[in-house]
Amino acid sequence: MTKKVVLLDYGSGNIRSGERALQRVGADVTVTADFDAALNADGLLVPGVGAFEACMTGLRAVRGDVVVDRRLTGSRPVLGICVGMQILFAKGIEHGVETDGCDQWPGVVERLRPEAGEPVPHMGWNTVDVPAGTTLFDGIEKERFYFVHSYGVREWQLTDTRASVTPAVTWTSYGGDRFVAAVENGPLTATQFHPEKSGDAGAELLANWVRSL
């Protein structure tokens, strides 16, 4: 059965490239900000490009933070991409401005700190350090993925081991600076990189997510 995926249109993100990438892997995609459609789809994809504060403002304007929370309460899958991943954390700090995120995970989104000589943003292809037993990276553990960002989560803070599902955290490094590249935490998954810009490897990652819905 074809899986129905809503790509949340809240004014941020590579909407059309994300739509095409999902269609490529066989999903039935609707691009909308409609609350009920986003709540009831088999999967919800939350994109994001730009500043943390602007993305949170746009997300709240369409009650996207509420729909994410309600979906997760009902164990319904959500995938965040780039800033769409970052806003799932507790807060972001950009240019000295602290903004509350969705707080689905504890942690702070902050500016990358690569070694001297490495430019920010981190832009281009990079490898990732994948833990064993992930769903997203099944069959593509050694592939490279495409990153475009200046901020990231440099410390994973969710340490409560009472949960029935232990989060699988994938890391990467840029200029010696280590940060979270992806998380799989029950129904909530996210990538800092752009699978829709990551060629065949990105397509396979999206296909793995769609198959899991």
Score class of each variant (00 low, 15 high):
Cys82Gln: 08
Glu94Lys: 01
Pro106His: 03
Ile81Arg: 05
Gly43Asp: 08
Asp69Cys: 11
Gly48Arg: 07
Asp65Ile: 11
Val97His: 09
Gly74Glu: 14
Asn14Ala: 00
Gly50Thr: 10
Ile87Asp: 02
Arg76Phe: 03
Val97Leu: 13
Arg20Gln: 12
Val25Gly: 09
Arg63Met: 13
Leu8Ile: 07
Asn40Val: 00
Leu44Gly: 06
Gly74Leu: 13
Ser75Gly: 05
Leu22Cys: 00
His95Ile: 05
Pro106Met: 04
Gly13Phe: 06
Pro106Thr: 06
Val31Lys: 12
Val29Pro: 05
Lys91Leu: 04
Met85Pro: 07
Arg70Val: 09
Val83Ile: 15
Glu19Val: 09
Gly107Leu: 10
Cys102His: 04
Thr57Met: 12
Ile87Lys: 01
Asp103Ser: 15
Arg16Tyr: 13
Leu72Met: 11
Val78Ile: 00
Val49Asn: 09
Val25Lys: 03
Leu44Arg: 07
Arg71Met: 07
Ala37His: 01
Ala61Asp: 13
Gly84Trp: 05
Cys82Leu: 02
Gly11Phe: 08
Trp105Arg: 09
Tyr10Lys: 06
Thr32His: 12
Ala37Pro: 10
Asp34Asn: 15
Leu88Arg: 00
Gly50Leu: 12
Ile15Trp: 08
Ala27Pro: 02
Arg71Val: 07
Gly107Asp: 09
Phe52Met: 01
Ile93Arg: 15
Gly92Tyr: 00
Ala37Ile: 04
Asp69Gly: 14
Gly96Glu: 07
Gly43Cys: 02
Leu44Trp: 04
Val31Asn: 09
Val66Asn: 04
Leu44Cys: 02
Thr99Glu: 03
Thr30Val: 14
Phe89Asn: 02
Val25Tyr: 11
Asp103Pro: 06
Val97Ala: 14
Phe52Cys: 10
Gly80Val: 00
